[in-house]
Design a protein around this nucleic acid. Sequence first.
DNA 1: GTTCAAGGCCAT
DNA 2: ATGGCCTTGAAC
Length: 541
Amino acid sequence: MDQQTSLMSLNMSPFDLSPGPEGSASGGGPSSASQQYVPQGAAYQCPPEQQSFGYANLDASYLFPTGTGGEPGAYLPTAGTVCDQTDTKDVIEELCPVCGDKVSGYHYGLLTCESCKGFFKRTVQNKKVYTCVAERACHIDKTQRKRCPFCRFQKCLDVGMKLEAVRADRMRGGRNKFGPMYKRDRARKLQMMRQRQIAVQTLRGSLGDGGLVLGFGSPYTAVSVKQEIQIPQVSSLTSSPESSPGPALLGAQPQPPQPPPPPTHDKWEAHSPHSASPDAFTFDTQSNTAATPSSTAEATSTETLRVSPMIREFVQTVDDREWQNALFGLLQSQTYNQCEVDLFELMCKVLDQNLFSQVDWARNTVFFKYLKVDDQMKLLQDSWSVMLVLDHLHQRMHNGLPDETTLHNGQKFDLLCLGLLGVPSLADHFNELQNKLAELKFDVPDYICVKFMLLLNPEVRGIVNVKCVREGYQTVQAALLDYTLTCYPTIQDKFGKLVMVVPEIHALAARGEEHLYQRHCAGQAPTQTLLMEMLHAKRKS
DNA sequence: GTTCAAGGCCAT
DNA sequence: ATGGCCTTGAAC
C-alpha cells in the first residue's frame, strides 16, 4: 500500500542547514534523515523502466559483501580466516548502503562509498532539486545509481546520511561532532564481529554454514488517519507504514535483536509450530487460530467447546506474527548500518507503526468497518493509546515479549517503553496491571474482547452512528461475560474485574499521551506521523 | 606526528 | 554531473 503519496505532498525541504560553527543543526532534534525529501522542478527525470517493484528501495544486496559470491551465508568468514584478523580494516569492508559499491569510509554519518559521498555533498551544497518521473521507488545500485538522482538522494536520507554533516560554511579539514560516534560505531562493529566469529567457530563444527537472509523494511513514512482508514481494505491484516517484508531469517550468528524467551503459560500462548528453526526476529506465539484455552485448570475440559463463534472470529483477527515481524523489521531497517540512532525517535517510529497496524486491524473488523469514516476516526482518536498499552500487555503476557532488545547496531532498545508510551516511571504501574491480569488468567479471547470494547466506546463525543457503536460494544461485552463464565467459572467475577482494569489502562495511556505531547512540543519527536496526528486530534476535540 | 572525514579539483 | 583522487585541519 502506498503511504508515500500523502507525505510527498507535505513538501518538506532538506536544506534548512542553519549556518554557523560546529553543527548548529545539532541539538537532539528530530533527525532529518527520516523526513521525506520532496523536490521541485524537473532537473532530472527517472526512466520509468527503472522503477523497482514496491517501495523496497533498500535492497539486501549490500548485506552479502565483498566478493564472496553474494550467497546467503557468504557474510560469514571462511574457516581459515575466522581468527586473528579482526581489525578496523575488516570492519570497514562493507558495501555502501545506498548503491552497494565499496565503502571508502565514514561519510556524513555512516559508511558509504566515495561516489555517494560526493553525490550527497553536491546535492546538499548546491541545493539541487530532482524529480522522479516514475514511482519514486527506483532501484539504486552501483550500475544504475546515476539514472535517478531523486531516488538516490532519497535513499541517502533513508539509510541515514546526515544533512547536518555537510558544512554550511564549507570549511575544510578538521573533525565534526560525529567523530566520537564513528569511533563508538567502529568499536561496536569490532565487538560484534568478534562475537560473530566465536559463534561461527562454534557452529561450523556441527552445522556448517547457516543461511543469512535479512528482510528489510522500507523507509518510514506517514499518512493521515483519514487516508489510512480510506485505503481500500485488504484481504488480510497488513501492517503499515511499510508493507513489511516477511520475517527475517537469520543464520548462524548472534545477530540482534534477539528473540524473547519462550512463553510459559497456557495454550493461547503456545509455541509456534514454526519456531523450531533459529529465527531471531520471531518469538514464539500462539498459532493464529481460534483454539480454546487448554492447559489452564479451568479451561482444560472445555477444549474447543463452548467458545462462541464470534470470539473465535475475534481471535482470528489477532496476528501477532505480523506484529512481531513489523516491530523487528522496523528496528532493523532503522538501525542497519547506522552508527547510533536516537532511541526516543526510534520509539516514536515503532509506536507510529503500531498505530498503523492498529488502524489496519480496526478497519478490517466487524462492527467497525461498517461505520462512516468520520465515526471511525473519532473512535480511533479516542482509543489508540489505550489499545497500544493493551497490545503491549498482550505481547508480554502471551508472547513473552522481553523488556529490551539489542539493535542491529549494538544499541539497547527498551521495548517496555513502548507499552509505557515513553514514560519509564510508569513501569511499576504497568507491571502491577500485568500482575493483576495474570491473576485473572487474562487470555487471548479476553484481550481481544477488551480491545474491541476499548475501540467501540459509545461515549465518544460526536459519533453519528452511536446506536451501531453501542450495539457492537454491548455484543462484545456480552460475549466476554459469557466466555469468562463458561471458561473460567472458578474465577469469581472475572468479567467484573477485567472491566475494573480498563480505567487503569486509560490512566496509564493518558499519562503516556501527555508525555509524548510534551516531547513533541519540545521538538523531540518525529513530526508528520500518525502518532502526532493522533495526539493533536485528541487535543482539538 | 598521525588519523580521517570534511571540502576541492578535474578528467571523463 | 559524476566519481576518483587530493588537500585540509581539528582531534587524538
